[in-house]
Design a protein around this nucleic acid. Sequence first.
RNA 1: GCCGGAAUAGCUCAGUGGCAGAGCGCUCGCCUUGUAAGCGAGGGGUCGUGGGUUCAAGUCCCACUUCCGGCUCCA
Length: 638
Amino acid sequence: MAEAVKVLVQSGDAAEEVLVESSAPLASVVPGEDPAVLAAQIGDQVVDLTRPVGPAATVRLLRFEDAEGRRVFRHSSAHLLAQAVKRLWPDAQLGTGPALDDGYYYDLHLPEPLTEADLARLEQAMRDIVVESLPIRREELTREAALQLFQARGESFKQQIIERIPEGTAISVYRQGEFVDLCAGPHVPNTGVLAAIKLTSVSGAYWRGDEQQPMMTRVYGTSFPTAEALKAHLDRVEEAKRRDHRQLGQQLGLFQFRDESPGFVFWLPKGLKLFRRVEALSRWLQEQLGYEEVMTPWIYKDTLWKRSGHWDHYQDDMFLIDQREEHLGVKPMNCPGHAVLFGSTVRSYRELPVKWAEYSPLSRFERSGALHGLLRVRGFHQDDAHLFVRPQQIQEQIREVLELIDRLYGLFGMQVEVVFSTRPQDYLGDLETWEDAERQLSAALADWGRPYQLNPGDGAFYGPKLDFNAIDSLGRRWQTSTVQLDYQMPLRFDLSYTESDGSRVRPVMIHRAILGSVERFVGILIEHYAGDFPLWLAPLQARVIPITDDEADRGREMVRDLRAAGIRAEVDDRSEKLGKKIRDGQLDKVPVLLVVGAREREVGTVSVRSRAGDSGVYDWARYVEELVQQAALPLARG
RNA sequence: GCCGGAAUAGCUCAGUGGCAGAGCGCUCGCCUUGUAAGCGAGGGGUCGUGGGUUCAAGUCCCACUUCCGGCUCCA
């Protein structure tokens, strides 16, 4: 029966040809029974090592180092978690437990809420199962058998999942010891390889993400093949925590949130310096491209919002005011105001593109649970602009926006990723217009020459869009910029311009924000730089430190020199020891500390200490000049 | 909005039914200092808000507010 087949086994960068029986398990082609091999890939399918080799010509062995292998490892970890829960709370019902990018979770329905204190017990139960090194076995069953199995075990959520599995799909379960879970797999060969595990948090989550459905308890965890790798990961998490903009904002005196106005920022002087600096950059770059700034009302009558469509589609997210007879809404976006302005006069094709920028405050009534530091607020500012263009100008205008994004993010040393979302099912307008718009967008992207991710069918109903993720110094992605084509707003406001042949044509509106919310962007920058802002951005660039009170006057003089040269500086003239002032300067993350003692005062020099440490003694006048140069905006491609 | 947790001095936090605390910051005094914390004293709190249980509540219970972790949503 068994037939010998020749298989090319790829393992990491190496590949070797082996002759095996086609009925032998894939594990038999693993060189030296290497326990680091978790699963295998045949074609584009990831499978268990217990599967027979079959007619495969090429088998790729997957380890934790491979993204696919990692997912298997984390998925098996989720099963491990579920098994431990069932041991401690036999009445718990299983929901789902997928792998995440750097961990996994399992949603469970528990009779009692689980607290973080229970996590230690649960973790221990998981370790016990690791030590037991239970083999993990796959089993395929019929729909009826599967339903019966989970019904017998009282797993109502699993039954719901089975009922939603399309006819004809193989239904599989995985068993390890007394535990069995409905699962497509694949999994690692046994629980023993899940060596280093850690539960990180517990929270609630709706079954299937639906508010109408029961609330599940979601337990989050992560896992690694070795304790060292787990430690390294936990250190990275610590690092991210250390950079939390909310903590740094408090520590560095940048901004505050207060109960008196939840979701709105109190900017302190230092934080506002950052905010204004970032905003000024955006303004400056846009002015180069011929944008013009406008400022439009922030409160409008309901008639405007009804016309723009916000009344029907966005009302829940707006601050509404009933002022005597009038129904008013505070603006969550600038677009209706700009549309009104565009339509206020007769426009010629010669004027287009009209590019209006606005930095006005916007308000959105975010649900209370959604608020998160500067990253999600109710009152914010966008570096917003609307481009009113002729349909044939879309490509060149998009191209220009892409360059603007490059230049702005380049200043902060950040890369951006693009997601192109195309026509959804329920699109408005005619197909031809959509196809032309999408063609122009992809042409602009192609011209830009950067890879992008296509998200078919995820565009807005009024037009296709580009979303941008900025990647920070820890490799985290933040959705910031957005570019959206809009055919609906011009229609609703009956916008038009006169074409060269005298006909009236409807312009296309391009909504775009480069920083996105300035508040959010500042929050991202705080985390990106961990509060160690580059000199050009730092709210306080230099602090002068006189060593004794005898140099305090000289110190104040130096601050005057620095301020006259445009450097943001202050003096620390407290009667404290030098070491103390240096320490405080470092903790305040001041880029340069300028020490002046009797020696420096006598000969007109300064002892400079940067973040890296003592960097020597310089002539004062020359140093100020040099500092001014270092503090200039890094506009390399000016 | 929903689930879970939390709220004590300006900040970070201890206090587990019986006199409200520490470190840092702040004020004052002493010290006059050479690259990450000098010494001493002082001031500072309706223990988030409102109700309840108790002889007695920062502590236990309930409601509300805000924050944190998620869900949902999203710039």
